[in-house]
Amino acid sequence: MFALVRRVDLAEVIGAALVEKASGHGARTIAARLGRPVDTVRGWLRRFALRAEHIRAYFTVLLVDAGVDPVPPAAAAGAFADAVSAVAGAWSAGAFADAVSAVAGAWSAAASRWPLVGEVSP
Protein backbone atom coordinates (compact mmCIF):
# COMPACT_ATOMS: atom_id res chain seq x y z
CA MET A 1 0.00 0.00 0.00
CA PHE A 2 1.17 3.45 -0.83
CA ALA A 3 -0.18 6.70 0.59
CA LEU A 4 0.30 9.96 -1.26
CA VAL A 5 1.86 12.99 0.41
CA ARG A 6 -0.74 14.95 2.40
CA ARG A 7 -3.45 12.44 1.56
CA VAL A 8 -5.32 10.24 4.04
CA ASP A 9 -6.48 7.80 1.39
CA LEU A 10 -4.37 5.15 -0.27
CA ALA A 11 -3.26 5.55 -3.86
CA GLU A 12 -5.53 2.65 -4.85
CA VAL A 13 -8.61 4.54 -3.60
CA ILE A 14 -7.65 7.71 -5.44
CA GLY A 15 -6.78 5.64 -8.52
CA ALA A 16 -10.20 3.99 -8.40
CA ALA A 17 -11.78 7.46 -8.41
CA LEU A 18 -9.67 8.47 -11.42
CA VAL A 19 -10.70 5.35 -13.33
CA GLU A 20 -14.37 6.01 -12.57
CA LYS A 21 -14.04 9.62 -13.75
CA ALA A 22 -12.33 8.45 -16.95
CA SER A 23 -15.32 6.12 -17.44
CA GLY A 24 -17.69 9.06 -17.34
CA HIS A 25 -18.90 9.10 -13.73
CA GLY A 26 -19.28 12.34 -11.79
CA ALA A 27 -17.72 13.31 -8.47
CA ARG A 28 -20.92 12.72 -6.47
CA THR A 29 -21.35 9.19 -7.81
CA ILE A 30 -17.68 8.40 -7.26
CA ALA A 31 -17.74 9.79 -3.72
CA ALA A 32 -20.81 7.72 -2.86
CA ARG A 33 -19.25 4.52 -4.24
CA LEU A 34 -15.98 5.09 -2.38
CA GLY A 35 -17.55 6.40 0.82
CA ARG A 36 -15.53 9.61 0.66
CA PRO A 37 -16.61 13.27 0.93
CA VAL A 38 -17.58 14.83 -2.41
CA ASP A 39 -15.19 17.76 -1.90
CA THR A 40 -12.31 15.35 -1.33
CA VAL A 41 -13.07 13.45 -4.52
CA ARG A 42 -13.48 16.69 -6.49
CA GLY A 43 -10.05 17.77 -5.26
CA TRP A 44 -8.45 14.54 -6.47
CA LEU A 45 -10.11 14.83 -9.86
CA ARG A 46 -9.24 18.51 -10.23
CA ARG A 47 -5.55 18.02 -9.40
CA PHE A 48 -5.26 15.07 -11.75
CA ALA A 49 -7.02 17.00 -14.53
CA LEU A 50 -4.57 19.89 -14.13
CA ARG A 51 -1.66 17.49 -14.71
CA ALA A 52 -3.34 15.08 -17.13
CA GLU A 53 -1.19 15.91 -20.17
CA HIS A 54 2.07 15.63 -18.22
CA ILE A 55 0.94 12.36 -16.63
CA ARG A 56 -0.11 10.97 -20.03
CA ALA A 57 3.23 11.88 -21.59
CA TYR A 58 5.29 10.53 -18.69
CA PHE A 59 3.53 7.16 -18.48
CA THR A 60 3.37 6.76 -22.26
CA VAL A 61 7.17 7.04 -22.32
CA LEU A 62 7.38 4.40 -19.57
CA LEU A 63 5.06 2.18 -21.60
CA VAL A 64 7.10 2.54 -24.78
CA ASP A 65 10.37 1.95 -22.92
CA ALA A 66 8.98 -1.16 -21.21
CA GLY A 67 8.80 -3.55 -24.09
CA VAL A 68 10.08 -4.60 -27.45
CA ASP A 69 6.77 -4.02 -29.17
CA PRO A 70 4.58 -1.97 -26.81
CA VAL A 71 1.02 -1.13 -27.71
CA PRO A 72 0.19 2.42 -26.59
CA PRO A 73 -3.39 2.85 -25.42
CA ALA A 74 -5.90 4.12 -27.96
CA ALA A 75 -7.03 7.70 -27.65
CA ALA A 76 -9.74 8.03 -25.03
CA ALA A 77 -12.48 10.59 -24.49
CA GLY A 78 -10.25 13.49 -23.49
CA ALA A 79 -6.99 14.29 -21.74
CA PHE A 80 -8.13 12.94 -18.37
CA ALA A 81 -9.07 9.52 -19.77
CA ASP A 82 -5.91 9.46 -21.93
CA ALA A 83 -3.77 9.96 -18.81
CA VAL A 84 -5.60 7.20 -16.92
CA SER A 85 -5.14 4.89 -19.94
CA ALA A 86 -1.42 5.68 -20.09
CA VAL A 87 -0.94 4.73 -16.42
CA ALA A 88 -2.89 1.49 -16.93
CA GLY A 89 -0.99 0.75 -20.15
CA ALA A 90 2.40 1.26 -18.51
CA TRP A 91 1.36 -0.99 -15.64
CA SER A 92 0.14 -3.78 -17.92
CA ALA A 93 3.27 -3.54 -20.08
CA GLY A 94 5.41 -4.24 -17.04
CA ALA A 95 6.94 -0.79 -16.83
CA PHE A 96 6.77 -1.04 -13.05
CA ALA A 97 8.68 -4.32 -12.71
CA ASP A 98 10.44 -3.88 -9.36
CA ALA A 99 10.03 -4.61 -5.66
CA VAL A 100 7.52 -1.80 -5.07
CA SER A 101 5.34 -2.98 -7.93
CA ALA A 102 5.50 -6.62 -6.95
CA VAL A 103 3.39 -5.88 -3.88
CA ALA A 104 1.54 -2.77 -5.04
CA GLY A 105 -1.31 -2.07 -7.37
CA ALA A 106 -0.97 0.03 -10.50
CA TRP A 107 -1.83 3.27 -8.73
CA SER A 108 0.58 2.70 -5.84
CA ALA A 109 3.34 1.90 -8.27
CA ALA A 110 2.45 4.89 -10.44
CA ALA A 111 2.51 7.20 -7.43
CA SER A 112 5.93 5.89 -6.45
CA ARG A 113 7.20 6.61 -9.99
CA TRP A 114 5.93 10.12 -10.29
CA PRO A 115 5.27 11.84 -6.97
CA LEU A 116 3.98 14.96 -8.73
CA VAL A 117 0.69 13.11 -9.16
CA GLY A 118 0.10 13.63 -5.44
CA GLU A 119 1.30 17.19 -5.01
CA VAL A 120 -1.18 19.80 -3.90
CA SER A 121 -0.12 22.86 -5.88
CA PRO A 122 -0.45 22.94 -9.69
Rank of each mutant, 00 (worst) to 15 (best):
A31R: 13
A76P: 14
H25W: 01
R28N: 08
V5P: 01
D98F: 03
A90Y: 07
D9Y: 12
L10F: 01
F48G: 06
W107K: 04
A16Y: 00
L4P: 02
A74M: 10
T60I: 10
A57S: 07
G24A: 05
V120R: 08
A106P: 05
P73G: 01
P115N: 02
A11P: 03
R113I: 04
R51K: 08
A88T: 12
R47P: 09
L34Q: 00
V100A: 07
F48M: 07
R28E: 11
G94L: 15
I14N: 05
R113F: 12
V117W: 10
A31I: 02
L10P: 03
L63F: 00
V5L: 02
W91S: 06
S108Q: 03
L50D: 10
A74P: 00
V100R: 05
V41M: 01
V13F: 00
V120L: 14
S23E: 14
L4E: 00
G35Y: 00
A75C: 08
A104N: 01
A104C: 05
V19A: 04
D39F: 14
G78E: 07
A52F: 09
T60E: 07
A83Y: 08
V68F: 05
A81T: 08
S92K: 03
S121M: 11
L62E: 11
T40C: 09
A17C: 06
G67P: 05
F96N: 05
G43N: 10
D9N: 12
L34K: 02
A109E: 04
R6D: 13
G35F: 03
D39L: 12
G105A: 15
V68L: 06
G89A: 05
L62A: 12
V38H: 10
D69S: 05
E53A: 09
R33V: 09
R36E: 11
A32N: 14
A57C: 07
A57F: 04
T29F: 11
R46V: 02
A17D: 11
R113D: 10
A22Y: 12
I55M: 04
L4H: 03
R113S: 14
F48I: 00
L18K: 12
A99H: 06
L63Q: 02
L4D: 02
V38Q: 03
I30E: 06
A22P: 08
H25T: 13
H25N: 15
T40A: 04
A110F: 03
R7A: 10
A17H: 02
R7V: 03
